[in-house]
């Protein structure tokens, strides 16, 4: 009997492994194809590849339009991250101090944008801020309005992560700091911040990645001068699909992957400190 049990277990294990393999290929394939295509020497985005070349990389980084889009993407992502982390951390701190109906409702309200489609948010913001002028400048079409828009998704992510982090702090440790003569601000700086540094870094990388990837809101809110890489890729795809697009995809993926690696190593370090 035990033998047949062993066989069943092994079969299950093999089946699991198979599914895992298929899913891995399925997940990795689009990225891998884009990666391979980016080294194509041909004029159009098509298999099989006739010749290998780095010419499209040179082309990408030589094109002011693409480089501008890359810079826009990075600047907007950085700005959105700063906004998300500042606002999200502050809200999380406030909400984590108390748990009642009001903070529950506030949390839900903060989370709402995560469940609203980007198209809807983009359209809404475009309509709302279409004619707003700030310091004599049209808000619409600036990088700033895209940062604001992206922080609608970044902030709730930061808030969720930071709220759990703040709640996990030992209340007695905070009280000990007050007890030894530190005011609330000093306690936050001396005791809370060093404790939650890794969590802040993680949530910052999350909001950075979300902003780099975001397409719909950027499409609605940018002009030719401020368009991000995903937007430019979409527009280029509609005119002509050259391997330059594959290069753009690889650049975008690289930014995201580097962020994820940083995120993972940050989390690992946190575990080490805890352990």
């Amino acid at each position: 009997m035990r033998r047949s049990g062993d066989i069943t277990a092994r079969l299950l294990w093999a089946a699991g492994l198979l599914v895992l393999g298929v899913v891995s290929v399925y997940v990795a394939l689009p990225v891998a194809i884009a990666f391979v295509m980016s080294f194509s020497g041909g004029q159009i985005l098509r298999f099989p590849i006739q010749s290998w070349s780095l010419r499209w990389y040179a082309d990408f980084f030589g094109s002011p339009q693409y480089v501008d889009a890359l810079v826009n993407t990075l600047v907007i992502a950085l700005g959105a991250t700063v906004l998300s982390v500042a606002a999200g951390t502050a809200s999380a701190w406030a909400i984590s101090r108390r748990k009642n109906l009001a903070t529950g409702a506030l949390t839900l309200l903060h989370m709402l944008p995560l469940f609203v489609p980007g198209v809807v948010l983009g359209l809404g913001i475009a309509i709302t801020f279409g004619n707003v002028r700030l310091f004599g400048m049209d808000l619409y079409g600036t990088r700033f309005i895209v940062m604001l828009a992206h922080s609608l998704w970044g902030m709730p992510l930061v808030m969720m992560l930071m709220e759990t982090t703040f709640r996990s702090l030992d209340r007695q440790v905070l009280e000990a700091s007050r007890d030894l003569g530190a005011g609330p601000f000093t306690t936050f700086r001396e005791i809370v911040l060093p404790e939650v540094r890794t969590a802040i870094l993680s949530s910052a990388l999350f909001s950075f990645v979300v902003s780099v990837n975001e397409f719909y809101m950027a499409l609605f809110l940018t002009t030719r001068d401020t368009q991000t890489l995903p937007v430019l890729m979409w527009l280029s795809l509609r005119s002509a699909g050259s391997p330059r697009l594959a290069v753009a995809a690889v650049v975008l993926m690289t930014i995201v992957l580097v962020s994820l690696v940083l995120l993972a190593s940050g989390l690992r370090r946190k575990e080490r400190v805890r352990g």
């Binding site: 007695q172 009280e175 000990a176 530190a182 005011g183 005791i191």
Partner: peptide, 15 residues
Amino acid sequence: NRRDTATIFQSGALF
């Protein structure tokens, strides 16, 4: 923080 007392907590509450 403005009282001249110092508490030893159950958990120790070290930083």
